[in-house]
Computed example of a mutant assay.
Amino acid sequence: MPLLPPRIRVVSLPALAAVVTVVLWASAFIGIRALGDSFSPGSMAFVRLLAAVVPLTAIMLVVRLRRRGIVVDDRPVPAWFPRGRALGLVIAYGVAWFAGYTVLLNWAEQHLDAGTASLLVNLAPILVALAAGAFLGEGFPRHLVIGMAIAFAGVVLIAVGGSATADAHADWFGILLGLGAAVLYATGVLIQKSALRTVGALTATWLGALAGLVATLPFAPAAIAELADADASAVAAVIYLGIGPTAIAFSTWAYALARTDAGAMAATTLVVPAIVIVMSWAILDELPTGIGIIGGVLCIGGVAIARRLLPRTRRGGGVESVAPAGVIDAQGATAVRDSGVR
């Protein structure tokens, strides 16, 4: 069987990695919703992080062993842990994102259907842009203000529309939890963005997950008790959340992000809520209401406008593509400037 041309291989592998990433991230919302009756929010986060840290540690060991056999300019193998400010940043983003975000999202999905939760979480890119405008001197350009207003209108419609499933009503407490998860997601991304200037992506992901695991240790006793009472399928599902949407998805995201245009990768994150809604309908028989779906479309459209993911029409009639100021993955793994990704 002839080999594929090199150009096809180079293009298709990052695209496949991006598809794997968004599907795994979407499946996490379904898994969290399905496990709400078996695990409390904190316990689920602890077991998920434990299941993620184990394979990430194995990957770190393999990478370090391979690097020991390769000498480049007589440079030493990087240390396991960064030092000083870099270590503090990694710990801070790990606690905010891996621990805090995960617990709040688990809690939110006890009040919201999976599709509604994913729509709310995808407001995080706007929150990052607002923080950049307020604290990093990037200001509040017109596209950001317009996108924010549209997205806010979408949140109101989601809250009013609720859920088409009786036991998954989108109450205001669930909406607040979902928005809180989006805030922690955005906070973790902003901190991680600074950490990644001096810490490698794999090391930062591993240490972030480890910091989140330590932060959720108070939930360990409850997790042990709930694991003992849970059936085998629930245990397998929560382990999947750690291995699939966390360890594997972040690895495939990093691979695709390093080999793909930043604008294209940003666009892929916007399809996650759509995948979640389809999966939720097929697996959980849950759907937002029509009004809620319209609100979700407004949220996604607002994010696209705020992050400049939509093409602009030039005066001469041509179409000018606009690259985003930054790229954020659906679970908060990475944020990069478009000038730094090729």
Rank of each mutant, 00 (worst) to 15 (best):
R9D: 09
V10Y: 12
S12N: 08
A17D: 05
A28S: 15
L35M: 14
S38W: 07
M44H: 07
F46N: 10
V47P: 03
L49C: 06
R67E: 13
V72E: 13
V72P: 01
D73Q: 13
D74V: 00
P76I: 02
P82S: 12
L87E: 03
I91F: 08
A92Y: 04
Y101W: 03
T102Y: 01
D113K: 00
D113I: 02
S118E: 03
L119H: 05
L119Y: 02
V121R: 00
V121S: 02
N122P: 01
A129C: 04
L130T: 07
A131F: 04
G137D: 12
R142I: 09
L144W: 11
V145F: 06
I150S: 04
I150W: 05
G154W: 07
V155G: 07
F173S: 12
F173T: 13
L176P: 02
A182D: 00
V183H: 04
L184T: 02
T187M: 13
Q192K: 12
Q192I: 01
S194L: 11
L196Y: 10
T216A: 07
P218A: 04
F219K: 00
A222H: 10
D231H: 09
A232E: 09
G242Y: 08
A249L: 03
A254M: 07
A258Y: 02
G263W: 06
A264S: 09
A267H: 05
V271L: 13
P273A: 03
V278Y: 03
L284V: 10
D285T: 12
T289A: 10
G292P: 09
I293P: 05
I294H: 01
C299Q: 09
L310S: 08
R315G: 15
G317V: 11
A325N: 14
D329I: 01
D329P: 15
R337P: 07
V341S: 03
V341C: 00
